[in-house]
Computed example of a mutant assay.
Amino acid sequence: MASMFDLMTDANPEFAEMWWVVHPNINPNRTPEEQAELKRQTERQTERRSSELRDDLDLWV
């Protein structure tokens, strides 16, 4: 079931954010691959949010 939700996150960024908050509680013993994917997801989220913030700040200049 968790793998199905992982696939759904690729198409829906809002769902991805919710899922990555809940996912560690469902499967606390992550495999190294899951840990690496979680790190990649977090990095993508950070970059996306940073980009959104930069775009928002550019509107005020």
Rank of each mutant, 00 (worst) to 15 (best):
N27T: 04
K39M: 11
E34H: 07
V21T: 15
S50R: 13
M18H: 09
L7Y: 03
D55N: 11
F5H: 01
D56S: 11
V21R: 15
Q35A: 10
R48S: 05
A16R: 01
L53I: 10
R54I: 10
K39G: 07
M4D: 05
D58M: 08
D55S: 14
D58V: 02
V22K: 02
N29G: 03
L53S: 05
S3R: 11
E17P: 02
R30Y: 00
T42E: 13
W20P: 00
A16W: 00
D55M: 11
E47Q: 14
L53T: 09
E33R: 06
D56N: 11
R54M: 12
D6K: 02
T31G: 04
V22E: 09
V21K: 15
N25D: 14
M4T: 07
P28V: 02
W19R: 00
A11Y: 08
T42K: 15
S50H: 07
L59Y: 03
P28D: 11
A36I: 05
L7M: 10
A2N: 06
R40N: 12
K39R: 15
N29I: 05
L59W: 08
P24G: 10
E47V: 12
D58F: 03
E17W: 01
K39N: 13
A11M: 07
W19F: 13
R49I: 03
A16T: 01
E47R: 05
S51L: 06
A36F: 07
E14R: 09
T42I: 04
A16G: 01
P24S: 11
S3M: 05
A2M: 12
L57M: 09
F5N: 00
E33P: 00
S3P: 01
V21E: 15
P32F: 06
R49V: 04
L59K: 14
P32N: 11
D55H: 06
E14T: 10
P32I: 08
T31P: 08
D6S: 05
T42S: 15
R54S: 07
R44K: 15
N12M: 05
P13K: 03
E34K: 08
R54T: 13
E34R: 09
A11D: 14
M8T: 02
P13D: 07
N29S: 14
N27W: 04
S51M: 07
N12A: 06
H23F: 14
R48C: 01
A36N: 06
M18C: 06
E17Y: 03
P24E: 13
D6Q: 10
Q45P: 01
D10M: 04
P13H: 06
W60H: 09
F15W: 07
A36M: 10
Q41R: 15
N25L: 15
W60R: 09
P28W: 04
E47G: 01
S3Q: 08
E43R: 01
V21Y: 12
P24H: 12
Q41Y: 12
P32Q: 08
D55P: 01
P32D: 15
P32K: 11
D56R: 09
V22D: 06
R54E: 12
L38I: 05
H23R: 15
E37Q: 14
D58A: 08
R54N: 07
V61Q: 10
Q41M: 12
T46V: 05
V21A: 13
E34Y: 04
T42R: 10
W60F: 14
V61E: 13
M8W: 03
D55L: 04
L57C: 04
E43N: 01
V21S: 13
Q35I: 13
V22M: 15
M18Y: 09
